[in-house]
Structures are given as structure tokens and as C-alpha cells.
């Protein structure tokens, strides 16, 4: 595009700068103060949180719930994405809408509806109920990511494999899977990040004594500010950022097809 683009006025620049300051200064302060000792700098807050049994348990719980729900989402989501992109059937449109509901539904509503349902069924709230709840929203993101990848893939590829004598099963493992694998991996990373980060749905479905990291941070913040929370939050920020950067880098690598 060679259209002439005007330089935005200085006023717009100032407002934009202010907006970014509003977004980033609190986060930056948090990170800086996580290394701050009354005099000078320290890693004490980090050693402190790593010796806190409850925090370690919460971190472990976050990883456990994230890993299991990601694994379930990947299997169910990839299968559903294949059906949605490669077959025609009655009710396909309705199923398509169904897969998008968890994305538009307020998280509060999803959390409390699952809470009612679990209590109704007599399910004990804990890691199991959290995994079920997390899969319910991460599944949608895996389906969408894998579908996008499948849309970018010529369906003639699969026909070519069939034409060359591959059975449906061989076609999937030799052609479809290697080609959609980047989508599956991105979808999985997305699912893990969302699960790891989730607060609201977890808030309703965690039950007593099974905190995830965001839950732990929330309950700690209730008692006011502390350098330990700063350190823990910084850790969490770094973990999510790594996830996002990896997804971003993968997309950048695979986009100029």
C-alpha cells in the first residue's frame, strides 16, 4: 500500500504515551519492588516464596490442572476441528455455534453454573472439578486454533494421499497430522496459558484447600500489599509472557506460507 498516511497530531501521541504509562508503570513498579530490600536489592522475596509450602502447592496445582486440561482439550479439540472442517453433516452449524459459546459467555456465569452442576451431582470440588471446568473453556480455543490451521491447508492434500493408496488412518498420521501439528501445538500452548492464568472459573470450582496460583495471589492480596506478592506476581508474569512469546514466535515462523 502506498497511500499517504498522515502523521498523527502530537496530542494523539501524548494520549497514547499516557495510556501506555497507565498500563505499564504499575506492572514495572511491581517487578522492580520484588527485588527491593529496605536498603538495596535482594532475592530474599523469591527464596521466601519458594520456601512457602502453600505457594509451592498452588504452583504444583496450577501445573497439574493446566497440563491435564490441555491434554484433554488437545485430543477432543483436534478431533472436533477435523469434523467441523472436513465433513458436512446435519447440525454442523449448531455445533459450530456451540463451540463458540464458552468464548462469549461471561466467565462468572460459566463458573457458577458448573458449581451448581457439580454440587447437584455430588462431585467433590477440587482438582477434578477444576480440570473439567478448565477443559470446558480451553477446548473452544483449541478447536478454533486447529480449525484455522486446517482452513489454511488444502483439502486436496488429504485427497492426494487417499488417491495414492493411503487408508483414512494412514492419511491422518502421514499427512493431516504433520501439517496441522503447528496448530495443535499453538492451541495447546494457548490452552495451557489460559488455564494457568484463569481466576474466575477456578474461583467457583476450586473448593476449599485446592488453590491454584492466581487463587493464592488473590487471597494474599486480600490482606494488603507485600513484597512476597510482588515476587510471586513477577514470577507468574514471566511464566505467561514466555508462553505468549513462544506462541507469537511460532505464528511468525509459520505465517509466511
Amino acid at each position: 500500500m502506498s497511500s499517504t498516511k498522515p502523521k498523527p497530531s502530537r496530542f494523539y501521541g501524548v494520549i497514547s504515551a499516557l495510556t501506555f504509562i497507565m498500563i505499564y508503570v504499575p506492572l514495572a513498579t511491581l517487578v522492580v519492588f520484588s527485588f527491593r530490600a529496605p536498603t538495596g536489592w535482594t532475592f530474599d522475596w523469591y527464596t521466601k516464596i519458594f520456601s512457602d509450602q502453600q505457594i509451592i502447592e498452588a504452583l504444583g496445582m496450577s501445573f497439574f490442572v493446566g497440563t491435564v486440561s490441555t491434554a484433554i482439550s488437545i485430543v477432543l479439540g483436534t478431533a472436533a476441528a477435523l469434523t467441523l472442517e472436513r465433513t458436512r453433516f446435519k447440525g454442523r452449524g449448531a455445533f459450530d455455534i456451540l463451540t463458540h459459546i464458552p468464548i462469549i459467555m461471561p466467565e462468572t456465569v460459566m463458573g457458577l453454573s458448573l458449581l451448581i452442576w457439580f454440587v447437584f451431582l455430588g462431585v467433590t470440588l477440587g482438582s477434578f472439578s477444576m480440570i473439567v471446568a478448565h477443559v470446558t473453556f480451553t477446548l473452544s480455543y483449541v478447536i478454533i486454533t486447529v480449525r484455522t490451521r486446517l482452513q489454511g491447508m488444502d483439502p486436496q492434500m488429504e485427497e492426494a494421499a487417499r488417491d495414492l493408496g493411503a487408508s483414512p488412518w494412514q492419511t491422518f498420521w502421514k499427512v493431516t497430522f504433520p501439517l496441522v501439528r503447528p496448530g495443535i501445538v499453538s492451541g495447546g500452548l494457548l490452552a495451557f496459558t489460559l488455564s494457568f492464568d484463569d481466576f474466575l472459573v477456578t474461583f467457583f470450582t476450586a473448593g476449599a484447600g485446592s488453590d491454584t496460583l492466581p487463587m493464592k495471589i488473590y487471597s494474599m492480596t486480600k490482606y494488603g500489599v507485600s513484597p512476597e506478592i510482588n515476587a510471586l506476581s513477577t514470577l507468574m508474569l514471566v511464566l505467561t509472557l514466555v508462553g505468549v512469546l513462544v506462541i507469537g514466535a511460532r505464528e511468525k515462523l509459520s505465517s509466511p506460507r
Binding site: V75, L76, G77, A79, A80, L82, T83, L84, R86, T87, R88, F89, F95, L98, T99, I101, P102, V109, M110, L112, S113, L114, I116, W117, F120, V132, A133, V135, T136, L139, I143, P168
Partner: peptide
């Protein structure tokens, strides 16, 4: 096309943990 059965687990999941809970609400 037997591939449509691949969507069954996801469909059951959404029915069981999305639609029924909403209905109960």
C-alpha cells in the same frame, strides 16, 4: 463419512458441562 464421529467426545463434553449447567441455572 465416519469422521463425523470424531466430534462426538467434544459434543458430549459441551452438552454435559456447558448446556446442562446453563439449563440448571
Amino acid at each position: 463419512d465416519r469422521r463425523i464421529f470424531l466430534a462426538l467426545p467434544a459434543l458430549i463434553w459441551f452438552l454435559g458441562f456447558l448446556l446442562i449447567p446453563l439449563f440448571i441455572v
